[in-house]
C-alpha cells in the first residue's frame, strides 16, 4: 500500500513560492497551565522555559500525560496559558486576541497531527487546498497538486481520506502543512497512528521537506527514532522540563 518515500524535486512549487521566508525564533518563558478539577487545581504545565532557535528542530518527549500536547497547543496559540509567555520572534503570542493568533498561524505555521485531521468529505487535493484557499491564494489547486506530487501522491489527488492508507493520509497532511510555506512546523505525534515501517517513511519525508523548505520544527513524540533525528530533545515529566 505505502510506496517508497519519493525524492524531492528541486524545482517544485516550493521554490516558486514568492513569500519572503525567514526562520522563526521561539521563546517560552515561565509557561504554566492549570485546570480546576473540583476543589483542586491540576497543574498540567508548571513553569516551563526554553528557546528554539530559528531553523532548529526540537523534539518534545515524555510519557503520556506529561503535558507535551498542552505545550504544543500553547506554542500554536490554540489555548491560553494560566501564566507565562510564548514569544515568536520576540512578539508575545498572548498579547494578541484569538483572531490575531489565528491570523498569525495563517501567516507562518504548519501543522501535522497524530490523527491526520483530514476532512473526510474532501479529496486529497481539496484537503491540501483548504489552508491555501483560506489564505486567499489564487492558484491554490496548482500549488496543492505540486505538493501532493512532492509527497508521491500525484496520482491520488481525487481520492478521499477513507480511500487512503494511514501512511498516505499522513503524507497528504504533510503536503498540506508544507503547502503554506510555514516558518514554524508543529507536529503532534506524527507517527503515533502508524506502524514502524510507515512511520519511518513519514519521518524521512518530514525531515526532507523541512530541509528543502526550511522551517523551525517542533515535534511532540513518543518515537525515539523521530526524537533522535531532531537537533535537540526536551523531556517533560509531570508538566516540568527535566532534561534539555
Amino acid at each position: 500500500m505505502v510506496g517508497e518515500a519519493p525524492a524531492l524535486a528541486s524545482n517544485g512549487p516550493l521554490s516558486n513560492n514568492k513569500r519572503q521566508k525567514t526562520f522563526m525564533r521561539i521563546d517560552i518563558e515561565n509557561l504554566g497551565k492549570s485546570v480546576q478539577v473540583g476543589e483542586d487545581a491540576l497543574h498540567i504545565l508548571a513553569d516551563v522555559s526554553f528557546s528554539v532557535n530559528p531553523g532548529e528542530s526540537v523534539a518534545i518527549v515524555g510519557s503520556s500525560g506529561s503535558g507535551k500536547s498542552t505545550l504544543l497547543g500553547l506554542i500554536a496559540g490554540l489555548d491560553v496559558p494560566s501564566f507565562g509567555r510564548v514569544l515568536l520572534d520576540g512578539e508575545n503570542l498572548f498579547d494578541l486576541d484569538e483572531d490575531g493568533r489565528a491570523a498569525l498561524r495563517g501567516r507562518g505555521m504548519g501543522f501535522v497531527f497524530q490523527s491526520f485531521q483530514l476532512l473526510p468529505g474532501l479529496t486529497a487535493l481539496e484537503n491540501v487546498m483548504l489552508p491555501l484557499e483560506l489564505a486567499g491564494q489564487a492558484n491554490a489547486a496548482e500549488v496543492a497538486r505540486g505538493h501532493l506530487e512532492q509527497v508521491g501522491l500525484g496520482e491520488r489527488v481525487r481520492h478521499r481520506p477513507a480511500q487512503l492508507s494511514g501512511g498516505e493520509q499522513q503524507r497528504v497532511a504533510l503536503a498540506r502543512a508544507f503547502a503554506v510555506a510555514p516558518r514554524i512546523l508543529l507536529a503532534d505525534e506524527p507517527t503515533g497512528n502508524l506502524d514502524v515501517h510507515t512511520g519511518a517513511q513519514i519521518i524521512e519525508l518530514l525531515f526532507e521537506l523541512n530541509r528543502a523548505q526550511g522551517a523551525t520544527l517542533v515535534v511532540v513524540t513518543h518515537d525515539p527514532a523521530l526524537a533522535a533525528l531532531c537537533q535537540r530533545q526536551l523531556r517533560l515529566e509531570a508538566g516540568r522540563v527535566v532534561a534539555n
Binding site: A76, L78, D99, A103, G106, M109, F111, L119, L134, A135
Partner: peptide, 16 residues
Amino acid sequence: FDQYALMRCFGASQRR
C-alpha cells in the same frame, strides 16, 4: 466541529 477547529488552526478568523 473538526472542520471549524482545523480552519481556525489554519488561521481563519471567527468572523470569516
